Simulated scan of single mutants.
Amino acid sequence: MRTGRIIKSLSGVYRVDSDGEMFDTKPRGLFRKKKFSPIVGDIVDFEIENVTEGYIQHVHERQNELKRPPVSNIDHLVIVMSAVEPDFSTQLVDRFLVIAHSYVLNPRIVVTKKDMASDSQIERIEKDLDVYRAIGYPVQFVGKKDNIETIFDEWGSGLAVLSGQSGVGKSTLLNAYRPDLAIETNQISKSLNRGKHTTRHVELFERKGGFVADTPGFSALDFDHIHKDEVKDYFLEIQEYGQGCKFRNCNHIKEPQCNVKAQVEAGNIAQFRYDHYVQLFEEIANRKERY
């Protein structure tokens, strides 16, 4: 019996990396009976049938798991945004952060295409990024001249998963880091101001100290698994200041003696972060009532 990590899944065949050796494996029938499927990122025990093939016998417990796209045991969720084409959006950043925290993931923010932005755009983006830095999120703002290896090394060891909408430069980042991969990239659709989907499946690629994964571009972020009362816990500074509210179950919308609203007034919570919180809270509240 050997142990390894699933690095690719295509048509029911799971490629497992075991100490640098690759095996194409299939899950035993017992997984089908349990209606359980292994996913990319899983640590598995498998039996070798011949030189490069085997059967998965056991899947180790997952430390975390992203549902869409399915990938597990993520050490760093790298939220990739672009400065321009598509334009940088704090609302999208906040939505990705909420998804990350809801799946108990460790998020960081990378903004690409700095060299394509004007000085005034860079200034505006840096001001927004300072808000995220103050909350405690690791942030990188990068252009073509930056040392790509240094950028990847800053993420630390383990599995880093790149997430973000299509066209922000996830595949371009990977190609710069590992030119041998030659991952297909597409131009931005001018009418939609977003990229076409180029990554079709999740695959882990080796990097110094671990793996990195490019994920299919998100066209929509799914909040179906999140209850409205949980949203405040996924805005870290709102969660922290919320402990000073008069009412323990305060949702910081219309409640009296709300410390969060007081901190927004005082400038300790960014207005745009609070606005995005209220927007998402109401969106989820209305969805729950509708269904």
Score class of each variant (00 low, 15 high):
Arg5Gln: 12
Tyr14Lys: 05
Val16Leu: 01
Asp24Val: 00
Lys26Asp: 00
Pro27Thr: 02
Lys33Gln: 10
Lys33Glu: 11
Asn50His: 03
Thr52Ile: 05
Ile56Val: 10
Arg62Pro: 10
Gln63Val: 11
Pro69Ser: 11
Ile74Asn: 02
Leu77Met: 14
Asp87Gln: 08
Ser89Thr: 13
Asp94Tyr: 02
Arg95Cys: 08
Val98Asp: 05
Ile99Thr: 13
Val104Ala: 14
Lys113Met: 06
Glu126Cys: 12
Glu126Thr: 14
Gly136Asp: 02
Gly136Cys: 01
Val139Arg: 03
Val142Ser: 09
Val142Gly: 08
Gly143Asn: 09
Glu149Phe: 07
Phe152Ala: 12
Gly156Cys: 13
Ala160Phe: 03
Gly164Glu: 05
Gly169Thr: 12
Ser171Leu: 06
Leu174Glu: 07
Asn175Ala: 07
Asn175Pro: 10
Asn175Thr: 10
Ala176Tyr: 01
Ile183Gln: 14
Ile183Glu: 12
Thr185His: 06
Ser191Gly: 09
Leu192Cys: 00
Asn193Ser: 15
Lys196Glu: 14
Arg200Asn: 13
Arg207Ala: 13
Gly217Pro: 03
Phe218Asn: 12
Ala220His: 14
Asp222Gly: 07
Asp229Ile: 01
Asp229Trp: 02
Val231Glu: 00
Asp233Leu: 03
Tyr234Lys: 00
Phe235Lys: 07
Leu236Val: 03
Glu237Leu: 02
Ile238Lys: 01
Tyr241Asp: 02
Tyr241Met: 10
Lys246Asp: 04
Ile253Asp: 04
Lys261Arg: 15
Ala262Ser: 09
Val264Glu: 00
Glu265Asp: 15
Ile269Gln: 07
Ile269Asn: 05
Ile269Phe: 08
Leu280Ala: 09
Phe281Ser: 01
Glu282Thr: 12
Glu282Lys: 14
Ile284Asp: 00
Ala285Cys: 00
Arg287Gln: 08
Glu289Leu: 14
Arg290Asp: 11
